[in-house]
Amino acid sequence: MITSRLLDLPLLRRSDALRTFSIAAWLGWQIESNWADPLLFAVYAIARPVASVLILVVMYSVITEGATQEPIFAYIYLGNALYILVSQVITGTSWAVIDDREHYRTMKQLHTSPMDGYAYLMGRGVARLIIGTISVLIVVGVGLIAFDLPLYPLTINWGLFLLSTVLGILSLAAIGIMLGGATMMMARHFWSVGEAVAGSLYLFTGAIFPLDVLPAWIRPLGFVFPVTYWLELARRALLGDNVPRFETLAAFSNGQLLGILVLFTIGLLGLSILFYRWALHQAKERGMIDLETNY
């Protein structure tokens, strides 16, 4: 096993967090890629995301009477493509708690071992991140071929794109881990709490329409989530001069937005670490760590 050798690096042996992260990522991949039927995988990772973007394209075309050459089309299309990562990363990390507790019933075994619980959830999110990334690439590919998206490798600001995307993903993982922590303290759970949060962020973070469209009193919601800044930066990086500038964020330079994104991501990560610790403590106080909902 090559993977088993990779996971045996001395660094990983010394650091609980890195070791746990890598093992959890391995485990997550075993679970997520365990598609007995490759067709199912194709539907899940390819057909579903492409279909949902196509629905949007149809709606857009009906409203604008086919103006897919307008800069706003690329803006919306890419926002939606990247948004696939939002629900994948949030559900990937938060779902692991429900999965281990209700399905595999391994909470007891995991939480009596010297693993790092926070790093574990991060790691469990990796598999869905990979699948999400594949979906994004395919959706963007479809956009290039079918709708002539104005993406030109030489003019894309790759550094800005990658950096902001990494930050965006980290902040999504932090949100997912907080949801996971909250799940640990609840006897009941909402099976789709990750999806629900991802769904509501969709409206407030400029994925589909710019924040300007929202009533002024709701806009602050969008400003709170790092996702907003990531989506804006990623689209600026990808589209360069072609990006439409909407009033709410137009006044900010790339550097300013990046600064905000860095600060917010660090803040959210810190908050999620504290919250996770608190939630774990609560769960142990209430005797809920290994609880099964049908108790």
Binding site: S4, R19, I23, W26, Q30, I31, R105, T106, Q109
Partner: peptide, 25 residues
């Protein structure tokens, strides 16, 4: 206790927990 990751083999399951405890391969 009959729990565990059903899609892993006996060996993989044990290996995973051994690794969580920091054992080398």
């Amino acid at each position: 206790e009959t729990s565990g990751y059903g899609l892993l083999t006996v060996e993989e399951n044990l290996w995973m927990f051994a690794r969580l405890y920091g054992l080398d391969n």
